[in-house]
């Protein structure tokens, strides 16, 4: 021990901290296993928490030994980045905010600082202060890494869910031979309206549908933008040779549309999905009768 301390005087504070972390990793990991960050995530066993803590300590030791205590992009962090991301994600799922996660990472520092001071023993005061400062900077970098991974994981989640929402909210249902329907649920924005229009038109081609029903029973509000999108969809369906029926306009929405002065007279409307289907079926029957009559007369 005395030789180590003697050699410690020639070392930089970063190297001393690195050596200390590597030497005491078991002890630190055991203490961290009781800290909120690890205890709440690794609930299965304490050993698992200690194991995770040890990996983080080793990464910190490698970073300190490389003299890159201020660099969140240090290569040693790459090893534990995934684990930290999972830890942060688990805390986020448990309802912890960014501030709380930050505080929990910060709570890892005092036990280590305590150990470091005890470990340094009787070295000059300014040298021990430098060591503690280096440790503090290192722990600050760890906090940065954890928060960075937490935020990027949150962003990934949001992006994925937005995509899922776009895909999941526009089912095209084949109600009858040649009749398709899209029940719209939730608020429509221009991105969603575009997806609705595209999927409906694709379905018209795929199903050879002569009638397309847009059911807006589940749409809470209609503004001029949504109305415009509805009219565009109807016009596009007509260009393709299909007839588009809008159904399920609720009284409140009808009132809004009239108040806004939107002219929906070019759009065929029915009160409910059932009425729209009945209309489409009647039209189909009429067409069949007509062509049958024509066929009979020409023969």
């Amino acid at each position: 021990m005395p030789e180590q301390q003697a050699s410690g005087h020639q070392q930089t504070p970063e190297h001393t901290v690195g050596d200390f972390l590597l030497r005491r990793r078991e002890q630190i990991a055991q203490r961290w296993a009781d800290a909120a960050l690890f205890r709440t995530v690794f609930t299965v066993s304490r050993d698992e928490a200690a194991e995770a803590g040890r990996a983080v300590v080793e990464a910190l030791a490698a970073t300190a030994a490389a003299g890159r205590v201020e660099d969140p992009g240090a290569s040693a962090f790459a090893v534990v980045r995934e684990q930290l991301a999972r830890t942060a994600a688990a805390r986020t799922r448990a309802g912890a905010g960014t501030t709380q996660i930050s505080a929990e990472v910060d709570a890892l520092r005092p036990p280590v600082a305590e150990l470091l001071l005890a470990d340094l023993g009787d070295v000059p005061a300014d040298y021990s202060r430098d060591c503690v400062t280096a440790l503090t900077v290192l722990m600050g970098t760890l906090r940065l890494v954890v928060l960075e991974t937490a935020l990027s994981a949150g962003q990934d989640l949001i992006d994925r869910q937005r995509l899922q929402l776009l895909e999941a909210t526009t089912p095209v249902i084949k109600l009858w031979e040649g009749i398709v329907a899209v029940p719209l649920i939730g608020t429509l924005d221009s991105a969603r309206s575009q997806v609705v229009m595209e999927t409906l038109l694709e379905a018209v081609v795929d199903q050879h549908a002569r009638f397309a029903i847009l059911d807006i029973t589940g749409v809470p509000t209609v503004d001029s933008l949504v109305a415009q999108h509805l009219m565009k969809t109807v016009a596009a369906a007509r260009l393709m040779g299909a007839e588009c029926i809008v159904s399920g306009i609720r009284p409140a929405i009808a009132q809004t549309i009239v108040h806004l002065g939107i002219d929906l007279s070019s759009v065929l409307t029915r009160s409910g999905l059932a009425d729209a289907l009945a209309y489409a079926l009647r039209q189909q029957d009429a067409d069949l009768d007509l062509s049958a009559a024509r066929g009979a007369s020409t023969r």
């Binding site: 595209e198 018209v204 596009a236 369906a237 393709m240």
Partner: peptide
């Protein structure tokens, strides 16, 4: 036979 993209 207008295509959806053309109609849009």
């Amino acid at each position: 036979g207008m295509r959806p993209a053309v109609a849009i």
